[in-house]
Design a binder for these strands. Structure first.
Length: 612
RNA sequence: GCCCAUGUGGCUCAGGGGUAGAGCACUUCCUUGGUAAGGAAGAGGUCGCGGGUUCAAGUCCCGCCAUGGGCUCCA
C-alpha cells in the first residue's frame, strides 16, 4: 500500500476535496490539504474534473488537426463542457468525428497531465502570439497563473484536471456552434464545440439514449406526423398555422382553462389587435419594448400591433367607474400578440412571432396583493398537477431597462416575496430578470424526461396604473390607484402545446387528444352503426373519426394505432347485434368489449379528469 | 441579428454539369376482411426563390428566403 499526500494512493483517485468543498486536483494537492478523495465515478465533483480535462484533450486534438489554433475558455457546464476557439480553417459538424478520433489517439499516448505556476507577466509573454489568451489573462486578477501540460500541449488553466488521459475514455462531442467572445453580441464570433463525458461507458450510453428520446419526442416531428400544426415558408418565419387536429387539441385546452377561470372569478374580455402608438408611449412599451414591436401607419397616424394585452384591459377597466367594493377585478383574454423575435431564435412552437397568451390582469388594492398572488399560485398548481408537471418558482427583480421609482419596485418585489414566504413556498431569485414595468414570479416546469421550461408568470405592477391614471373610489370616497397583477399560467398556447407534445410524446390523455376515438367498421355493413355512435359522442363534445376507407381491416387498425388516439374501437356483426363496442387498448395491445352505455360512461369519466 | 450546416413530389430520402428517382401517403379499381401493412393501375416535382458561369445547371458561383444547431433574449 502506498501513501500519497496523506491518502492511500489508488489507481482510482482523480482529485480531492478540501474542508471548504473546493476541488483540489492531484497535481495541486499537498500533504494534509484535503478532507476526502474524489474517486473516478459519476459524482458531480468527479464529472467536473473529467469534463474539464476532456475539454483540454479536445483542444489538444484541435491543435494537432488545424492551423493556427487559439483557445478562449473551456468550462464545464450543466450538460457537459465546451471550448471556444478560433482556427484558420472552417470546422463543420463532420469534423467532430475526426476530432474525436484524434482525441482517442492522444489518450493512447498515455500522457500525464502536469501543472506548473508562472507569474502573470511571464504568461503574457509566453502567450504573446495568442490574443485570445491575452483576453483571458486580462480577466484574471491574480498575479500568479497556472499552466497545465500534456505532451506538447500547454494551456493556461485554473484546473482541476485528472492525473492522466486514461480517465477520459467515455466522451462524445455533441455539437458545433458559434458563440460570441465573452457572450458580447458586438464581439467577434468564435467556434464552440460542445461535448459530454462520463466516468463509464454505461452512463455515456444512457445520456445518448436520453438525447435520442428527446429527439423522438420533438414536437416539430410529432406535430408534423400528427398534423397538429405547420409553418409555411412563403408566409413567413415564426408564424404558426394550426391544422384541424392541432386546433381541436388547442380548443380542448382553451375550454378546460375557460371553465377554470370562470370558477375563480375571472371575466373574459378582448382588446383590439392594434392600438395607436401614443398608447404604447404612455405605457412605456414604445421606449422599453419598441425594438420587439411591429409598427405601422394608418391615415398618417402611427399604430403598434400589440405585443402584450395589458393596455386593452386597462381601457376596459377605465370605461366604467369602479368602487373598492368591485375589487379585485380579474379580466382574462386569450390574447393574440406579436413580437419581433430575432430570426435566429425561432424554434418550432416554442419560440414564434405570433402567439396567444392565456393572459389575465387582476386589478386590486395593495392590501390584496398577497392574497391574489397566492390564489394565482394555487391556480398554477392545479393546472400543472393536471398535466403531471413538477415546477419551481423564481422571483425576478428590476431590470436595467425599466420604468418607475425604485421605492415602488422595492414594495412590489417585497409583496411577491411575502406571498411566497408567508406560505412557505420555496423560490429562487433572478436579479435583474423582471419585466420593464414590474417584478415577477416565473414558473418553471419540468417535463416527463426532466427538461425545464419557463411557462407561467405572475407580475406585480404599480407603474402602468399610474401611467394610465387608473382609479377606483375607496370607502372614504376618495380616488385611489389600484395595483395590477399580470399573470399567465400556460404562458402561451403555442409554447404549452409544444411542451405538452414532448411531455406526452404525442400520447395525449383522453381529455386533450385531438381525436379521442377512432371507429373501425369491419365491413360496409357496420358503417351505419359507427356513424350513429360518432354522433352520440359529438353530442358529448368527444371527437371521433371513422376509418371506413377501402383498405384491409388490418391495415386500418394499424393506421388507427399509429394515430396515438386513446380509443380504437372495432365494430362488426357482433357489436351491431349487441349494441356494444370492441375496444383496443393500444398500450397493452389487449381488447375488451363494453356495452354502449358503459362505453359512454367510461369516456365521460375520462373527460372528467380534465376538470380543474 | 451573428456563426455553422441544410433545402429534390404531402412525408422520409437517393441522384452532384447532358431530358427528374424510390418508399410511404394520395386517387381509382378488384378484394368485405375479427385485431399492426391484401392486390393492381394511376396521378403528383419549373429540384426553396432570384441572378450569374456554361453549348448545357437540382448539380458550380453570388444574393435572398426558410429550416436545423448554437450565441443573445424571452411566453
Amino acid at each position: 500500500m502506498r501513501i500519497f499526500k496523506g491518502f492511500i494512493l489508488s489507481e482510482n483517485i482523480i482529485g480531492y476535496l478540501d474542508a471548504q468543498g473546493n476541488i483540489i486536483d492531484t497535481q495541486s494537492a499537498v500533504e494534509g490539504c484535503c478532507e476526502r478523495e474524489i474517486a473516478y465515478d459519476n459524482t458531480a465533483e468527479a464529472l467536473e474534473i473529467i469534463r474539464h480535462s476532456t475539454a483540454h484533450l479536445m483542444a489538444q486534438a484541435i491543435t494537432e488537426l488545424y492551423l493556427k489554433p487559439q483557445f478562449f475558455v473551456g468550462p464545464v457546464v450543466d450538460e457537459g463542457f465546451y471550448y471556444d476557439f478560433r482556427v484558420d480553417e472552417k470546422i463543420s459538424e463532420e469534423d467532430l468525428k475526426k476530432i474525436e478520433k484524434k482525441m482517442k489517439e492522444l489518450i493512447k499516448k498515455k500522457y500525464k497531465i502536469e501543472k506548473y505556476e508562472i507569474s502573470k507577466a511571464e504568461a503574457i509573454e509566453k502567450f504573446a502570439q495568442d490574443d485570445l489568451k491575452q483576453a483571458v489573462l486580462s480577466r484574471i486578477p491574480d498575479e500568479t497563473v497556472t499552466v497545465y501540460k500534456q505532451g506538447a500541449f500547454e494551456d493556461l488553466c485554473r484546473g482541476p484536471h485528472v492525473p492522466a488521459l486514461r480517465f477520459l475514455n467515455n466522451f462524445k462531442l455533441t455539437r458545433i456552434a458559434g458563440a460570441y467572445l465573452g457572450g458580447d453580441e458586438n464581439a467577434e464570433m468564435l467556434t464552440r464545440i460542445y461535448g459530454v463525458a462520463f466516468a463509464d461507458r454505461e452512463s455515456l450510453k444512457a445520456y445518448m439514449t436520453m438525447m435520442e428520446e428527446a429527439k423522438r419526442r420533438d414536437h416539430r416531428k410529432i406535430g408534423a406526423e400528427m398534423e397538429l400544426f405547420m409553418f409555411n415558408e412563403a408566409s413567413g418565419a415564426g408564424l404558426p398555422f394550426w391544422m384541424p387536429k392541432g386546433a381541436k387539441l388547442r380548443h380542448k385546452l382553451e375550454q378546460i382553462l375557460h371553465k377554470a377561470h370562470l370558477i375563480r372569478g375571472y371575466e373574459p374580455v378582448r382588446g383590439p389587435e392594434i392600438l395607436k402608438a401614443d398608447m404604447w408611449r404612455t405605457s412605456g412599451h414604445y421606449a422599453c419594448y419598441g425594438d420587439n414591436m411591429y409598427l405601422t401607419e394608418i391615415d398618417g397616424q402611427e399604430y403598434g400591433i400589440k405585443p402584450m394585452n395589458c393596455i386593452g384591459h386597462i381601457q376596459i377597466f377605465k370605461q366604467t367607474q369602479k368602487s373598492y367594493r368591485d375589487l379585485p377585478i380579474k379580466y382574462y383574454e386569450y390574447g393574440v400578440v406579436h413580437r419581433h423575435e430575432k430570426s435566429g431564435v425561432l424554434h418550432g412552437l416554442l419560440r414564434v412571432r405570433e402567439f396567444t397568451q392565456d393572459d389575465a390582469h387582476i386589478f386590486c388594492t395593495p392590501e390584496q396583493i398577497a392574497a391574489e398572488v397566492l390564489e394565482v399560485v394555487e391556480f398554477v398548481d392545479s393546472v400543472m398537477k393536471l398535466f403531471g408537471f413538477e415546477y419551481t418558482m423564481e422571483i425576478a427583480t428590476k431590470p436595467e431597462k425599466a420604468i418607475g421609482e425604485d421605492a415602488v419596485w422595492e414594495m412590489a418585489t417585497q409583496g411577491l416575496k411575502d406571498a411566497l414566504e408567508g406560505n412557505s413556498l420555496p423560490y429562487t431569485l433572478d436579479e435583474g430578470g423582471g419585466a420593464f414595468y414590474g417584478p415577477k414570479i416565473d414558473i418553471k416546469i419540468t417535463d416527463a424526461i426532466g427538461r425545464k421550461w419557463q411557462c407561467g408568470t405572475i407580475q406585480v405592477d404599480f407603474n402602468l396604473p399610474e401611467r394610465f391614471e387608473v382609479e377606483y373610489v375607496d370607502e372614504d370616497n376618495t380616488r385611489k390607484r389600484p395595483v395590477m397583477i399580470h399573470r399567465a399560467i400556460l404562458g402561451s398556447f403555442e409554447r404549452f402545446v409544444g411542451i405538452l407534445t414532448e411531455h406526452y410524446a404525442g400520447e395525449f390523455p383522453m381529455f386533450l387528444a385531438p381525436v379521442q376515438v377512432i371507429f373501425v367498421p369491419i365491413t360496409d355493413d357496420h358503417v351505419a352503426y359507427a356513424k350513429a355512435l360518432r354522433l352520440k359522442l359529438l353530442a358529448e363534445d368527444i371527437d371521433a373519426e371513422i376509418y371506413d376507407k377501402n383498405d384491409s381491416l388490418n391495415k386500418r387498425i394499424r393506421t388507427a394505432e399509429k394515430q396515438r388516439v386513446p380509443y380504437v374501437v372495432i365494430l362488426g356483426d357482433e357489436e351491431v347485434t349487441h349494441r356494444s363496442v370492441a375496444i383496443r387498448d393500444r398500450r397493452k395491445k389487449e381488447q375488451y368489449n363494453l356495452n354502449e352505455d358503459d362505453f359512454m360512461l367510461q369516456l365521460k369519466q375520462q373527460i372528467q379528469k380534465g376538470k380543474i
